[in-house]
Design a binder for these strands. Sequence first.
DNA 1: TTAATCCCTATCGGAATAGTAGATTTAATT
DNA 2: AATTAAATCTACTATTCCGATAGGGATTAA
Lengths: 135, 135
Amino acid sequence: MLSKKTKYGIKALTYLAKQENRIPVQISTISKSESISQKFLESILLTLRKSGMLGSKKGKSGGYYLLKDPNNIVMVEVMRVLEGPIALVPCVSLNFYEKCHDCPDEKACSVHNLMLEVRDSMLKVLNDKTLADFI
Amino acid sequence: MLSKKTKYGIKALTYLAKQENRIPVQISTISKSESISQKFLESILLTLRKSGMLGSKKGKSGGYYLLKDPNNIVMVEVMRVLEGPIALVPCVSLNFYEKCHDCPDEKACSVHNLMLEVRDSMLKVLNDKTLADFI
DNA sequence: TTAATCCCTATCGGAATAGTAGATTTAATT
DNA sequence: AATTAAATCTACTATTCCGATAGGGATTAA
């Protein structure tokens, strides 16, 4: 299941991408428009800022705005930043690999092989989709 | 992330599919071979029996065995029985559909549209793979 | 100076996960 | 018939994670 964090994050990014210009939008504005708990959204936007997708402006009439062009915000990156690994098991993860301690031979493991294919099929979609596709 | 329940379930099914004949295998045997907590495995095998994939025999020299041919045990069904919905959000689930209460228009929702494609790509793999592929 | 806004840390309740314990039922073997 | 080994069923527990909340602190435009 997708966490609400990721769900809200994608919605917020879409909202920002739909803005005509790149002037800062307040958290409260997005929170109301997308009916997201404001405090929760706050922490999500902070994460996205740290990852380099968003910029922010402090103080009065501050807010968040896209740093990159929507074409260059690939959904796989959004997922990795907010949700974590794409793979459903650590032993097939590209960016968060971890060996199964109970698995003597990955090549012979049915779970490993199945999830490898699932991962690849997901990546095919997520590597292709960008924020621009949702404007 | 895939739950251990599903992971163990797939491993146990694979183990049973690899047996030459269809005589019952004890839980303890599978549990040792695959290093799975026996009691936990117990409840998993019970679930798989109720779903019709496994048969069981009680009493001495009892155990679990495959009911169907490995070719007819499709991984998408295993996943649905043990893990639940394939879709990452309920609003794109085929078997467990639920409307998002915060989403006025699914067609216009970026999360919905993205996850729709992810689901389809996953289904393409899971509908195709059967237990027989892992023997 | 003030008010609005981002930034940061801490906490909390509830749900889900993974596993445990023990009693019961069933069936093969002696 | 008694014994034994196995699945079955119910209930419980510990831990972790998620979503949300609370309360300031820092920053900046007006």
